[in-house]
Design a protein around this nucleic acid. Structure first.
Length: 172
DNA sequence: TGCACGATCTCG
DNA sequence: GAGATCGTGCAT
């Protein structure tokens, strides 16, 4: 008797800003190597939207690294930052429109690097399909309606785009 | 082929 | 405030 179902295509195939906001309160489900399954409620996200968004990796164009962002929403985009942290992103939007939502915090674990470590991510998650994966997906659960917005973190280089309030933080 | 740097975190 | 640590994009 599963209380909530896995989020499907219609949820992710929308613009990253909308998805980032609505992901607050949704549940990441992770089945670890050991077989143990754990659930994590999303409490902080950031949206990266398209080639024009200078903070988005897709502003560099279509490369091996950004390729998956050009696909239909519902894929996992992970990348290594500072040589040691795997950032977890969910691809959003439609084919040909590179967008993604970065997961910055779950439950009481705040920080994109810490989330990646908590979920034990690595390069093999790149391109994984949230609709068919046996080890990482997102389930529906009540949205956290109470949230605040803020500029994205660590993107001071992004010109006018750095000030967009595309960071969503659950809570008041 | 080389190099500077990054959607970070921890320790001191 | 600095170090850890390495893939990526761009210059050479």
């Amino acid at each position: 008797m599963t209380a909530f179902s896995r989020l499907r295509s219609a949820f992710f195939r929308r613009d990253a800003v909308t998805v980032a906001r609505e992901l607050l309160g949704k549940t990441i489900v992770r089945r670890f190597e050991s077989g143990e399954i754990k659930r994590f409620v999303i409490v902080e996200t950031e949206a990266y939207l398209g080639e024009d968004d200078l903070a988005c990796h897709a502003s560099k164009g279509r490369t091996p690294r950004t390729e998956v962002m050009y696909h239909d929403g519902g894929k996992i985009y992970v990348y290594l930052i500072y040589g040691m942290y795997w950032m977890l992103n969910f691809v959003t939007g439609d084919d040909g429109h590179p967008q993604a939502v970065l997961i910055r915090g779950v439950d009481n674990v705040i920080g994109s690097g810490r989330v990646g470590r908590l979920l034990q991510l690595d390069k093999t998650f790149y391109g994984e399909d949230l609709f068919t994966s046996e080890r990482l997906w997102v389930e529906d659960s009540p949205m956290l309606e109470q949230y605040t917005t803020a500029p994205r973190v660590g993107v001071d280089y992004a010109g006018e785009w750095k000030d967009r309030k595309w960071r969503f933080i659950a809570g008041k």
